[in-house]
Amino acid sequence: MDSQIDFARVRSYLLNLQQQITASFEQLDAPRFIHDPWQRAPSEHLRGDGVSCIIEPGGLLESGGVNFSHVSGDTLPSSATSARPQLAGCSFEALGISLVLHPHNPYCPTVHMNVRLLAAMPAGAHTAPVFWFGGGMDLTPYYGFAEDARHFHRICRDAVAPFGADLYPRFKQACDEYFFLKHRNEPRGIGGIFYDDFSELGFEQGFKLMQSVGDAFTKAYLPIIQARRHLPFGPNEKAFQAYRRGRYVEFNLVCDRGTLFGLQSGGRTESILMSLPPVAHWRYNWKPEPDSPEAQLYSDFLIARDWL
């Protein structure tokens, strides 16, 4: 298995992917993303830079971000060593793209995608870095459409199929298990694929997997929002969207390891928390009316199922 890590090549790919994704949305909508390059002030313990591409408000997209970051530090954050205690105290380098998009129309689902590479450098001149890839994408509808869920999962399956027939079932199950609000006993959405601590293919094939997942994002998501963006809606639909967005906030602040890693590693807070929606509501002990479209989200979509 190859162990040579080409950070420069990964960085170049990720910056190009960021540009391609933002351009694809700008072609659908008039407002442009705000490009906010940043660089950490010099520090002996942490270094890094990135570009946050933010849209708020944006017509089709009520808010969202497509963010690139590349950081390194003297000590790997504890959120990354819980499963690898032997790496505690190692220096590290991490880079990736993370995006969350919240459409204005409640019939368009929120989407999340992330691809990343992280490497830890154990002490010792002849000790090879320990690296792993992570990423995936998942869909969070407010009003479900079975054909959208099937399309999204089909693109996810096709993106990882060249790297092993077992990967989609593994990554789908991991996604269902990870994007789950245990304190609510419910999924965040209809899932997709999720993988972490992934190094079994070596660097070159792992990098190709990253590219395949990243390149599949617009194929998975754009057809869905193009089909739903003009559906009529009213205040009831917006209120339900805001209520369900509350679940999104709960997950990202209570459960998400990526949020914790970003904050623990001294990442840029504004970029990390751009995943939160602009408006979210909570209602005490609320349930949708039986047989309503809102109730159908719970009965038909927020359940573990094989969409293919």
Results as ranks from 00 to 15, higher is better:
Arg84Lys: 15
Phe251Ile: 00
Leu14Pro: 03
Ala8Val: 04
Pro85Met: 03
Asp176Ala: 11
Tyr107Cys: 03
Leu87Pro: 00
Ser271Phe: 03
His112Phe: 06
Gly59His: 07
Leu276Phe: 07
Arg229Gly: 05
Leu209Lys: 10
Gln27Leu: 08
Pro232Gly: 06
Pro290Phe: 01
Tyr13Ala: 00
Ser299Gly: 04
Gly144Val: 08
Ala94Asp: 01
Asp291Lys: 15
Gln226His: 04
Leu222Asn: 02
Trp307Asn: 10
Thr140Tyr: 09
Asp196Val: 05
Phe261Asn: 11
Gly135Ala: 11
Ala239Gln: 11
Pro122Cys: 03
Ser24Thr: 10
Phe25Pro: 00
Gly192Ser: 05
Leu46Arg: 15
Gly164Cys: 04
Asp166Met: 03
Asn67Gln: 07
Arg305Gln: 15
Gln226Ser: 09
Ser212Glu: 01
Ile272Cys: 05
Phe131Ala: 07
Ile193Asn: 11
Asn236Glu: 13
Val111Leu: 02
Val10Leu: 00
Tyr248Thr: 13
Ala239Tyr: 01
Leu15Gly: 07
Asp256Arg: 14
Glu250Asp: 15
Phe180Ile: 00
Leu231Trp: 14
Ala239His: 09
Arg170His: 10
Gly191Ile: 03
Gly258Asn: 12
Leu14Met: 13
Val160Gly: 10
Phe261Met: 04
His153Asn: 10
Tyr107Leu: 07
Tyr284Trp: 13
Ser199Pro: 01
Gly134Met: 13
Met113Leu: 11
Lys172Ser: 08
His126Pro: 00
Val254Asp: 12
Ser78Trp: 07
Ala146Arg: 15
Leu61Trp: 03
